[in-house]
Each structure stands twice: as structure tokens, then as C-alpha cells.
Design a protein around this nucleic acid. Structure first.
Length: 165
DNA sequence: ATAAAGGCCACCC
DNA sequence: GGGTGGCCTTTAT
């Protein structure tokens, strides 16, 4: 199978958001990464680990425009998520959840036709490369508790609160 | 080829 | 509240 790697003008930057500073990475093919790391060093490490063959160039201007579009204008720029077929099907299902609503890991598993793969669904959601835009924060446990979040439960809670309005 | 590690769940206590 | 076994994918041996 063929994966679209961020080859054409790969860029990155750190930008302020309503949920703390984000690390955003993109190319002419779209956004390939949007994370909310503890600090810039771990943000860079994460990029390095996931895109070991790509060297990103810092581009604060373009990133600032993107971040404004995302968090102020509510626009949804082109995405370029990279993963296995299983992961892509799940990340696609996440994008069908309307803003302000939540669903459960079980329902996502059912939505992709793999009702038994709930555990793997949780793992794949945890591997979501494009936070916020691929709304992994809208998935909670079937018992109503919040479940996990890669960048801390406080962040998950904050985004959900923010989306209620 | 195999093991270990997950943002889970149902079921028990 | 906490612990166990089962489930499935991914990553590291």
C-alpha cells in the first residue's frame, strides 16, 4: 500500500492555542501532525520519532495562519494523516462525530464493522496524529468516564468544554 | 515468529 | 472503588 509522506516543503512550528501551545507540522499535502506537548523538546522528539525520514523546516508565518483558521475561524484545513488501514478507518470515523457531542470506543468499533476490536480501537485512537482536527477527544468510555488522552485528561476536558459553546 | 504493550470492556468482589 | 481475563492491532525483540 502507498502512504503519502510529507515530502513537499515539510514545515513545522509551535503556536499558541486555547488549549496551550501546539506543535503543528504540515507539507503541501496538508497537516500531518498537530499535538499538544508538555514542552517543545518533547514535541520535536515526537515528530522525529514518527517522521524519521523527514526534515521539517520551521515556518512560523504559515503555521500562524493555519492555527488562526483552525481555532478562530473554525475552518478545517486539508489533512494528511499517515497510518495503517485500520488506523485510517478509525481516524476517519472520528471525523464523523459532530462537534459538541461525544461517542464511545465501543460505538467507534461498531461503526468500522469491528465490534470485537474495542481494545485495538482505543490504541489506534491514542495514536491519532492530528489532535483536535481529528477529534479523538470526543470519544469516552462506555461507562461514561472520560477514558484516556495522550496530552492529559485536563486537556481533553478543556476541549470538550470549549466545544459545548 | 513471537512477545509485550496499550486512551477498552464485561464481569466479579 | 479495584482486580482479572479476553479481545485485537502495533511495535519491538
Amino acid at each position: 500500500m502507498h502512504y503519502l509522506i510529507p515530502a513537499s516543503d515539510p514545515s513545522y512550528s509551535f503556536q499558541a492555542t486555547p488549549f496551550g501551545e501546539c506543535c503543528i507540522a504540515f507539507s503541501n499535502d496538508g497537516i500531518c501532525s498537530l499535538t499538544f506537548p508538555e514542552d517543545r523538546e518533547s514535541g520535536m522528539m515526537d515528530l522525529k520519532r514518527r517522521f524519521s525520514e523527514t526534515t521539517f523546516k520551521q515556518n512560523d508565518d504559515k503555521a500562524a495562519r493555519l492555527v488562526r483558521q483552525i481555532f478562530e475561524d473554525g475552518k478545517n484545513p486539508t489533512l494528511n494523516p499517515i497510518g495503517t488501514d485500520f488506523q485510517l478507518s478509525i481516524w476517519n470515523a472520528l471525523q464523523q462525530i459532530p462537534a459538541g457531542e461525544t461517542t464511545t470506543y465501543v460505538k467507534i468499533a461498531e461503526a468500522i464493522g469491528r465490534p470485537k476490536a474495542v481494545r485495538a480501537v482505543g490504541t489506534a485512537i491514542g495514536a491519532n496524529p492530528i489532535g483536535f482536527l481529528i477529534p479523538c477527544h470526543r470519544v469516552i468510555r462506555s461507562d461514561g468516564s472520560l477514558g484516556g488522552f495522550r496530552w492529559g485528561l485536563e486537556c481533553k476536558k478543556a476541549i470538550l468544554e470549549w466545544e459545548k459553546k
